[in-house]
Simulated assay, not measured.
Amino acid sequence: MLSTGDGVAGARSIQPRIEDLQSADFRTALSEEEFSLVYQPILSAATGAITACEALLRWDHPSLGSISPALFVPVAERTQDIIPVGAWVLETACREAAAWPDICRVSVNVSPVQLQEPGFEARVAAALDASGLAPGRLELELTEGVLMRDAAVALGSIVGLRALGVSIALDDFGTGFSSLGYLQSFAFDRIKIDRSFIRAMSERRESRFLIRTMHDIAHHFGMAVTAEGIETEDEARILREIGSAELQGFLFSRPLASAAATSLLREEARRQRRSEAARQRRSTRRAAP
Rank of each mutant, 00 (worst) to 15 (best):
residue 157 S to D: 12
residue 247 L to Y: 14
residue 155 L to F: 10
residue 270 R to K: 12
residue 194 D to V: 00
residue 74 P to M: 13
residue 199 R to L: 04
residue 55 A to F: 05
residue 283 S to E: 15
residue 176 G to S: 00
residue 167 S to H: 04
residue 175 T to C: 03
residue 70 A to Q: 02
residue 113 V to S: 01
residue 186 F to C: 11
residue 155 L to K: 15
residue 55 A to P: 02
residue 162 R to W: 12
residue 66 S to D: 10
residue 84 P to L: 12
residue 51 T to Q: 13
residue 115 L to W: 07
residue 83 I to W: 05
residue 181 G to V: 03
residue 9 A to G: 11
residue 56 L to A: 10
residue 64 L to Y: 08
residue 123 R to C: 02
residue 52 A to V: 07
residue 73 V to T: 11
residue 123 R to G: 00
residue 1 M to I: 09
residue 212 R to W: 02
residue 173 F to P: 01
residue 101 P to F: 11
residue 232 T to A: 09
residue 261 A to H: 04
residue 163 A to R: 11
residue 167 S to F: 03
residue 275 S to Y: 06
residue 157 S to R: 13
residue 267 E to C: 06
residue 225 V to S: 11
residue 263 S to W: 07
residue 155 L to C: 08
residue 167 S to R: 10
residue 79 T to H: 08
residue 65 G to N: 04
residue 97 A to D: 10
residue 126 A to H: 07
residue 153 V to L: 04
residue 26 F to M: 12
residue 214 M to Q: 05
residue 37 L to E: 14
residue 91 E to L: 02
residue 268 E to V: 07
residue 88 W to S: 01
residue 11 A to K: 02
residue 238 I to A: 07
residue 239 L to W: 13
residue 178 S to C: 03
residue 253 S to Y: 13
residue 3 S to Q: 12
residue 243 G to Y: 13
residue 164 L to Q: 00
residue 286 R to A: 14
residue 188 F to T: 07
residue 161 L to A: 01
residue 149 R to L: 03
residue 45 A to L: 13
residue 187 A to F: 10
residue 160 G to V: 02
residue 102 D to K: 14
residue 81 D to R: 09
residue 255 P to M: 14
residue 182 Y to F: 08
residue 12 R to V: 12
residue 192 K to E: 07
residue 65 G to T: 01
residue 65 G to Y: 08
residue 91 E to D: 06
residue 59 W to V: 05
residue 38 V to C: 12
residue 99 A to D: 13
residue 244 S to E: 13
residue 234 D to A: 07
residue 172 D to I: 01
residue 113 V to I: 09
residue 141 E to K: 00
residue 280 Q to G: 05
residue 114 Q to I: 08
residue 139 E to Q: 14
residue 64 L to A: 06
residue 79 T to K: 05
residue 110 V to L: 05
residue 14 I to C: 06
residue 278 A to L: 13
residue 282 R to V: 11
residue 276 E to A: 14
residue 42 I to F: 09
residue 222 G to E: 04
residue 228 E to Q: 00
residue 111 S to K: 14
residue 95 R to E: 06
residue 112 P to Y: 03
residue 102 D to A: 15
residue 203 E to H: 01
residue 67 I to H: 07
residue 234 D to C: 04
residue 12 R to C: 10
residue 210 L to V: 04
residue 283 S to G: 07
residue 147 L to N: 00
residue 230 I to C: 11
residue 256 L to H: 11
residue 218 A to C: 03
residue 187 A to P: 08
residue 284 T to R: 15
residue 203 E to T: 04
residue 165 G to S: 04
residue 91 E to K: 01
residue 260 A to G: 09
residue 3 S to H: 12
residue 267 E to A: 15
residue 240 R to L: 07
residue 242 I to Q: 15
residue 24 A to Q: 04
